[in-house]
Design a protein around this nucleic acid. Sequence first.
DNA 1: GACCTGCTGCGGGATG
Length: 795
Amino acid sequence: MASLPKPLEDWFAARGWRPRSHQLAMLEAARPGRHTLLVAATGAGKTLSGFLPVLADAAEKGPRPGLKALYVSPLKALAADVERNLATPIREAGLPLGVETRTGDTSSEAKRRQRQRPPDILLTTPESLSLLLTWPEAERLFADLETLIIDEIHAFATSKRGDLLALAAARLRTLAPRLRLVGLSATIADPPAMANWLAPGAEVEIVRGAEAVPPDISILVPRGEIPWAGHNGRHAAREVMELLEEARQSIVFANTRSIAELLFRDLWTENDKALPIGLHHGSLSAEARLKAEAALVSGRLKAVVATSSLDLGIDWGDVDLVVQMGAPKGAARLLQRVGRSNHRLDEASRAVIVPGNRFEYLEALACLDAVAEGELDAEPHRPGGLDVLAQHIMGIACAGPFEAGSLYAEIRLAAPYAGLSRDSFDRALAFVATGGYALSGYDRYRRLVEEAPGRFRLTHPKLAQQHRLNAGVIVEAPAMTVRLGRGRALGQVEEWFATQLRLGDRFLFAGLTLELTGRSETDLYTRLARGAPSVPSYEGGRMPLSTHLARRVRGMLADPAQWRRMPADVRDWLEMQRRHSRLPPADKLLAESFPREGRHHLLLYGFEGRNAHQSLGMLLTQRMEKRGLKPMGFVATDYVLGVWGLEPVEDPASLFAGDIVAEELEEWIGATPFLRRAFRDVAIISGLVERQRPGARKTGRQMTVSTDLIYDVLQRHEPGHLLLEAAWAEASSRLTDIARLHALIARAREELVVSRLERPSPLSIPILIEIGAEGVSGMGEAELLAELLRDDREV
DNA sequence: GACCTGCTGCGGGATG
């Protein structure tokens, strides 16, 4: 086993610590220069472990010039936190190392200095790293770089930010041939796959931290019944309030921003003791978020209601309880959140899940099992975005002329682009150079010139400045700033929501009931008000039930021996289902059909997540239409798809015949407004349109107008354009889950178990209530239950 | 009037 150099050994000893075995393993792996992936629980000293080889090197070799280590974090705040945490060992062990951060918050003067005289260790974000690579000095700057540490690597690997980072890392491997890559995370489902993402084709040593004490996670069983429908756990606000009263400090996670707002209000209604409870989500102003964070860390806040805005990294205060409202949607996500409580390895983190309905109870139970067995759900790695690729190519051009052939080879070192064809690369390059065939007539899209065969450079140096001003892959929906009075900004609501508001309307935001008193192009002016408000919602991403949990839920339903672990009302529900219909088999697909109020319902218990169910609902209703079955609508949840129409579906299996996906799905995606919106995003990322010019940021509406115009031109004149392809990929991955849709259809074809009923089955009740909630039918929940119970007595 | 299933994250340079 490797040992620490003297100064570090003394430093550990002075603190009464001994290096943990995974820390020594990190040291050991670094000696021969091996890439490393560290998987260790929160509280295991993960970040220090990543840096330990860098610190040891400094202790042994003394001061050396140049940038030696680069650290990339998904959050600016985390980079700043790491800077503070590194300062202590460096100072106390007397190591000759300078550490600085470089993010959007860094002054341009400091950034310039860093380009000329870099610190030994630089802490940054993927965006800032990409921008650093656009400078001509990059080649010299990174020549001596030895280590690239990617923290919270799981947060990158399946996103466009990850594409950007992987491309930057590939570039760094060219500039710094001795570069060693290090990935850090607490929640990795498939370490070998992640190792391959980190350094495709290279050998990566996987180091595992010591096992932490298993978390203590329980499922809250409300005093009343577990609801039949609903997704947010708000029914248990009273019970949650009691938990908060008993705990030292808590984070209450909600799955959406609007639910966070509603829940915050609910908790205050129950807050008899007037405990300080805060609110934190991504649409609140930075000021409001920082205030909540500071109050959390200092202990002034007893609890905070948050979205995933508090998922990552930083140790938020003295939190000893995490509450998950509604379904956790995946074991890795739950574990990440549970890790926010109790950052000590030798004590269990405590968490409580509050399922929103009975299906969610099953999911919560499946999630507990998955966590206990250490089986996390993996998100599939996907090919990198062509829009991100275009941005990267432009960035490289900003640093100086390049050879297309060697850039292509380098880009394939990035995992998301390992399978990139030369043809796709050439199309991306041609797009950056001229805008592509249909746009090549416009001067403004000429960004590169081929100065010698295969050798490209910028057409004008000012393009580099433009690029730096517009780089990055995060595109936000057009939004308006909400102000109290005409002054303080409380945060942002999306434009589409803002346009629905009329003067005098009330809405719930930042925990306040606000009344709209005026508006400008970019701002909403408000005052405090009373009365029932509407609640803004946002067009964020979805969190589908993970494949892995879906399988567990099916297994649980099919195995009555497991029902003993469930509360009585859930158990009774399943028992009734067994008597009246059938249980969904673990490996087959259950379909139920029954008439109700003049309509015929068809329910498919797929458990493949909302996206897959929604696509299937669309496909099936199209087919039913063609067959004259007069479909009227469908509803999809993570668990079930419900379709209804005027005629019964006599043979549900026949709906799945032939190639149902290829044509109809394409037609559908092509017809949705999502495609246009996706085009807007890729047009921005690829650099086709500019978000800002020096001194002026464009409004969301301006951006949308210009991308809409280009979209129409390309649709007409060049339907095969690179950006239409990229938009297509984006829209289809957001709208549907092709892999799971295929799995669902395959199960339907192989064996569809059909249960024909006279009345709704117990399992169908949640979805029937959901249909009622959408105003399609006026059936009441009470009526449904009464009917079912009457039916039950007859058996 | 009550009800909400759509998360997160970043980002220039030089000057006055």
